[in-house]
Amino acid sequence: MGIVSTYRLRLQRKRWRIRAIRKRRELEPIRNRTSQIKNGDIFLFSTMRNEHVRLPYFLKYYRDLGVNHFFIVDNDSNDGGLEYLAEQPDVSVWHTQNGYKRSRYGVDWLNWLQLRYAHGHWCLTVDPDEFFLFPFCDTRPIRALTDWLDASSIKSFSAMLLDMYPKGRIDAEPYMPGQNPMDIACWFDSGNYTSEKNKKLGNLWIQGGPRARVFFPDTPEKAPALNKIPLVKWDRRYTYVSSTHNLLPRGLNLVYDEWGGEKASGVLLHTKFLNTFTEKATEELERKQHYSASVEYQAYAERLAENPDLWCKWSEKYINWRQLEILGLMSKGNWA
């Protein structure tokens, strides 16, 4: 890494920060409860659109994990989700009508809120269909993890996106508010992931899973990225670059060990493939507000018309984090 490229990355980071600061005007506070926050609180940041049905379980899941405050940007929902969020005692919510794409898929908005509120706090940045798992999450709260990361001087924590899907047609069983989505979408692919290193930012680029297997068997380079770094001890100088796949400064992306060892890591269970998906895919295709002209949604739409069964004979049924650790999808590292 020469001086020039290091400096370029510095400029890029500053650019994203300035952009985030500029984009703050797009956010209209609906309910700002940030006066409640205390030192050492753990935050969750999310941006969403028309996800009301998922919210009750989503909030419950993360409250149980030990998240203290939720920061949510609502991108013009019309399903009552915004009103629901505004009623919650531990949620601060902002509203915007501006383009999701123009804010770099919500990154700018969240970068701003993190810059403003999250300095010195551990922040989890997830989508409403992502559920964070970390080693020992069934017996220890998330604070045990962040305390341990603090003691080990680790600033960022990796979690791979693991696509969950139901057996049979995606729309066979409707999802009800408050229901655990993993009860319906409880299957996953355990061992068809490929990783590559992003030379510039230092993060891994992971692809694979059922989406690559079913939707992109002939154009694997277009398959969506699955590497994520959702948990960061935030500093106001940090910025997410592309979704939560990578950050700047680039040292935060070094969440993997290069000398044969395993660092501790988690998993984000991705429950996109519920009955709500079919509708969403159609809508997103029209809005064209997703990554690279929604190429992902185009591929889905083509295949969805046929028979959207992602399940195969070798799908694994989800049990708990220990199963994922044995399968090599996450690791305890040196946390015991």
Partner: peptide, 20 residues
């Protein structure tokens, strides 16, 4: 735990183990 952190599981490539 120390062994896992320093040597890792042989033949496993994942998001927190990507050996040079």
């Amino acid at each position: 735990a120390v062994e896992r952190r320093t040597r890792g599981r042989a033949g496993l490539i994942m998001h927190s183990r990507f050996p040079n």
